[in-house]
Design a protein around this nucleic acid. Structure first.
Ligand code: DGT
Ligand code: MG
Ligand code: MG
Ligand code: ZN
Length: 584
DNA sequence: GCCGTTTTCGGCCCGACTGTTTTCAGTCG
């Protein structure tokens, strides 16, 4: 499917046009790119079926953009964009990453000083050539030097699993700081917002919202910038401040009065694209929406602001959960009252992927079971590695059988239902890593690729398809193989994988390990259109991992999944209809 | 470059903070 690469084409062209100070076109290109990304249908199929007319039906795509798309689909390139790329200096994208530099200043630097790359800029700063430039000065030269330092130290996005605990720490520290003042400030309504509240898989910065009366706001800011972990204060005002922590993470704090708290929560949760769309809904209805409230356009009278839910309500929309706020059609769905009823933590009745001391887990079978029972689960599947996983201490047949014995014994001591499972390697030829005689004895077979990640797409796809056609496989685990910040997903044709998985009634795993989150939200959304079912699993290696379910749940919700889409929300009696071997 | 329950032309989200500005542009959220 070429949707993603075509969207990328327009994003890239938009960037270049922006550096060239072209007005509005970048916005149009980005809007079109976003629509293509979230199409939910193969754009090539639309074009094959309806031609250019099919393309212009897509909102944000007119004559000109449709022409570019059809040119790309026919010739695999867009002449105009090729020329654009030739002309564009290649260092510009990196310069845009430097805080304080935008399209205008970069152009000025390029036109007057010939600065095209980051190293050009560094040299210009060292030679103090910047401060003599119109629009630059002593301070901006220093700030840029600082920003470059910062950029080179860290600019990678933080994994959700790292950012959430960090945000909790910062919030506790700030609360404590404010409450320990001689004149206490109560920050009980402090909350993390931004991509963190939307549970995005990676986080660019930590965004925090607090409520305080106007007179107190600056005092809250004083507390904030004087937190012990703060290394640098980027900016500080009475409603908004930004700092960078010693370990490199940026934190934004907004402080608003109670009558604006809900509107500010809406604003600061984002996403940016969701906000813009929502503000357009407001405009169409004769309102103005900002972080301070929803106002009547004419009189300027505030009609909502203290409560977030009220903002959506007064715009004639159903409440949109943060995880859906990505401008992927949620606003239209909310207007028709057709939002999905998202799967919730309380819906989950079991965990279908975990390891024990038998293979690479750190805790005993019994400990894992005890913890799972305290979590209130009705069932779990014990899924240690199969025999080829030598590094992970994969189980030989004899050891697996010994585990079954222990499971039988422990089953008598616990209320929870313990399924005999295995995380079976999908070998390089697509076969499974135990003989059929063993596979058919297992309650649940979780298949996973753990080798040959560099296979070309065709071969990897065939390999996984072969596994999906194996009647013993139940669940396809971490289907893309990516490790956030470490390893890209392997090359595989997901359209084909989903098609075959659906045809064979296989379940797709949403792996909750913070470094995996695999399938990711985009692919979940796509997979759902094939009618697939999912399971949200922790792939625990310790008892404490069992609580990482929240991260996978977040991705499931971001993928618009409902309870019905997720098989580990089913009671055991119904799970047996999904995994037929449970009936034996 | 796209779009239209006041528009086929003239809009395109709205506001905070900073630095260099002598009244606001640029950048960012
Ligand atoms: N209306 C409006 N809101 C914005 C804009 N830019 C950012 N916001 C809001 C929505 C964002 O979710 C929120 C926080 O901004 P961030 O830059 O931190 O983005 P976000 O947290 O979504 O993603 P991140 O993971 O930090 O890259 O501020 C904008 O241009 N317009
Ligand atoms: Mg953020
Ligand atoms: Mg931010
Ligand atoms: Zn595993």
């Amino acid at each position: 499917m070429k949707n993603r690469e075509i969207a990328e084409l327009f994003y890239e062209a938009a960037d270049i046009l922006e550096y060239q100070q072209v007005e509005w076109k970048p916005r149009a290109y980005r809007k079109a790119a976003q629509m293509i990304e979230n199409l939910g249908e193969d754009i090539e199929k639309i074009y094959a079926r309806e031609g250019k007319a099919g393309l212009t039906k897509i909102p944000g795509i007119g004559e000109s953009i449709a022409d570019h798309i059809s040119e790309y689909l026919e010739t695999n390139k867009v002449e105009k964009f090729e020329k654009l790329k030739e002309k564009a200096p290649s260092g510009t994208a990196e310069l845009m990453e430097i805080r304080g530099l935008g399209a205008k200043k970069i152009k000025k630097l390029s036109d007057t000083l010939g600065v095209r790359t980051l190293s050009d800029l560094k040299n210009a700063i060292i030679a103090h050539r910047l401060k003599r430039l119109e629009g630059f000065g002593e301070k901006s030269e220093k700030n840029l030097a600082r920003a470059i330092e910062q950029y080179e130290k860290s600019h990678a996005r933080l994994a959700l699993g790292k950012a959430l605990p960090l945000a909790d720490e910062v919030i506790s520290a700030l609360k404590a700081q404010c409450e320990s003042r001689t004149s206490k400030i109560d920050l009980s309504k402090i909350i993390y917002t931004g991509s963190l509240r939307r549970l995005k898989e990676t986080i660019g910065d930590i965004d925090i919202l607090a409520e305080a009366e106007k007179e107190e706001a600056l005092k809250v800011m004083d507390c904030f910038v004087s937190l012990p972990d703060v290394e640098q204060v980027i900016l500080k005002g009475s409603t908004k401040s930004s700092v960078i922590l010693r370990e490199g993470t940026a934190i934004d704090l907004r402080v608003v009065p109670p009558e604006s708290y809900g509107a500010a929560l809406q604003y600061f949760t984002g996403s940016k694209e969701h906000n813009i769309e929502l503000r357009n809904v407001a405009i169409k209805n004769g309102y103005k929406l900002s972080e301070y409230g929803l106002y009547l356009k004419e009189s300027g009278k505030q009609i909502a602001g203290s409560s977030e839910a009220e903002i959506y309500e007064r715009l004639g929309l159903a409440y949109i959960p943060p995880e859906l706020r990505e401008n992927r059609g949620e606003i239209k769905a909310a207007a028709r009252n057709a939002l999905p009823k998202l799967v919730e933590a309380g819906d989950l009745r079991g965990d279908l992927h975990m390891h024990t001391e038998y293979s690479e887990g750190k805790d005993s079978l019994k400990t894992m079971i005890e913890k799972a029972e305290t979590l209130g689960y009705e069932y779990i599947a014990v899924t240690d590695h199969s025999r080829s996983q030598k590094i992970a201490n994969g189980l030989e047949v004899e050891k697996l059988k010994a585990q079954w014995k222990e499971i039988d014994k422990l089953s008598k001591q616990f209320r929870i239902k313990i399924l005999k499972g295995s995380e079976v390697d999908i070998l390089k030829d697509g076969s499974l890593d135990y003989p059929a005689g063993i596979l058919k004895e297992l309650d649940v077979v979780v298949g996973a690729v753990h080798s040959g990640f560099a296979f070309p797409e065709r071969r990897m796809t065939e390999r996984i398809v072969t596994a999906l056609e194996n009647k013993y496989l139940d669940i396809l685990a971490h289907p893309s193989g990516r490790l956030l910040g470490k390893r890209e997903a392997y090359a595989v044709n997901f359209e084909k994988v989903f098609e075959v998985a659906a045809a064979n009634g296989k379940v797709i795993e949403i792996n909750s390990q913070p470094s995996r989150l695999d399938l990711n939200d985009d692919l979940i959304l796509r997979a759902k259109t094939f009618g697939l079912k999912f399971c949200i699993s922790t792939d625990s290696h310790t008892v404490s991992d069992l609580t990482s379910m929240r991260y996978g749940l977040g991705q499931a919700r971001r993928g618009w999944l409902e309870k019905e889409d997720v098989v580990n929300t089913y009671p055991y009696s119904r799970l047996k209809q999904v995994f037929k071997k449970l009936n034996a």
